[in-house]
Design a binder for these strands. Structure first.
Lengths: 217, 217
DNA sequence: CCTACCGATCGGTAGG
DNA sequence: CCTACCGATCGGTAGG
């Protein structure tokens, strides 16, 4: 049995005011519920977290949650879908920010690493709980992932065509770099040895080495 | 709710004989129980799998499992601990197989990639369910992981000292390569585009590029 | 936002 | 290996 705080009664460890900066009632409460779910799902898993746990973190009773969210499943959907939308937006912005394909790749990796360092709960939940998403959300998310990978693969292929990358398999290379970047969210700590900016820079360099980029940068 | 097969009665999809090749009774049954748990925990998560599910996969009733295993928790422990022992053994064998540090690193990566390609269920469970391990198993596993990382970091440091690697942060480099190698278990398919031997070879090369290895190999 | 409560299901035990 | 059954807890609803 997972050791998770018992919430037989509302507790005193919750945010005193709304995370979204609002007054603690109204539409801002949905953001609070999502934030509590984010922390608890990431720590104990979707099935290891109960609606009572989430409510307890907000000093509420479980049934009260249902005035803000339709179901536990809907909470999971919000978390996973919004994460993929954010990551996709950042990737597209990085790719659109320059014409130099090596610089596109570097910025894409830096953005991705920073994203995972700053949103570790989202990826932890997304990666391990997709299987528990109901349709059509599950297919939607899987499609978004494939699209994300395709954008990265195309970028590397473009670099190979232009002669600045030396890559035998763009697909395997992308799988490798996406996993290592996402992995940052599992070991990065804000008070740790490296800042997220340092890590992003370092991983950007690692990836340029992986693709055999030569020119001075 | 996860869509997992209902097992109101024993079903007909289970192994007809013991996975371990024994007669289907006796000590071989423990291996069958572990194998069924491996598949179901990997697919639906530890909390998303019930003892009834595991029993159903073996055409049994849930209470019968308890003559082979002490608890659901004990099953999780067996899976996670044995995985880390296997991976550790393979790493040490790779490091001991040659004096050339670049070759040590290459073989370590190849072994690690192959391991994750061949045992994807073990890592999927280990990575997401450590949190649900009870003490002292949880601390033991975390110690084994740190030791594994330390062995890899030392290898890279040795390469830097000998002048064959160019690495600014062995620690970050190891985190990166371990994540990307473990990630193979999540996309490799036996009937897919690449064989696990091809992937291992490719990832070995990627890592040698990451560490700035130059000499011809 | 609450109390009261629902049917379903959980991991595990008793006792054969 | 089984049936019968335990206390606890689950997500969610009713009705304020």
């Amino acid at each position: 049995m997972p050791k998770r705080p018992d919430n037989d009664a509302p507790e005193v460890s919750a945010p005193e005011r709304s995370t979204s900066g609002r007054a603690g009632r109204g539409e801002g409460r949905l953001a609070d519920v999502e934030d509590a779910a984010l922390t608890l799902f990431a720590e104990y898993g979707f099935h290891g977290t109960t609606m009572k746990d989430i409510a307890g973190a907000l000093k509420m009773r479980a049934p009260s949650l249902y005035s803000h969210v339709a179901s536990k499943q809907a909470l999971l959907e919000m978390i996973v879908v919004s994460m993929h939308e954010m990551a996709d937006r950042e990737l597209r912005a990085a790719l659109a920010s320059t014409e130099d394909v090596a610089e596109q790749l570097r910025r894409a990796v830096e953005a991705h690493v920073r994203f995972h360092a700053l949103h570790p709960r989202h990826w932890k939940i997304s990666s391990r709980e997709v299987i528990h998403l109901e349709e059509p959300a599950k297919s939607k998310v899987r499609g978004m992932r494939r699209e994300f990978e395709a954008l990265m693969i195309e970028t590397i292929e473009r670099g190979v065509e232009r002669g600045c990358f030396d890559v035998a398999s763009p697909k395997m290379t992308v799988y490798a770099m996406l996993r290592m970047s996402a992995g940052v969210g599992q070991w990065y700590r804000p008070d740790g040895e490296f800042s997220h900016a340092e890590i992003a820079r370092y991983y950007g360099e690692l990836v340029l080495r992986m693709v055999g980029h030569r020119e001075p940068h």
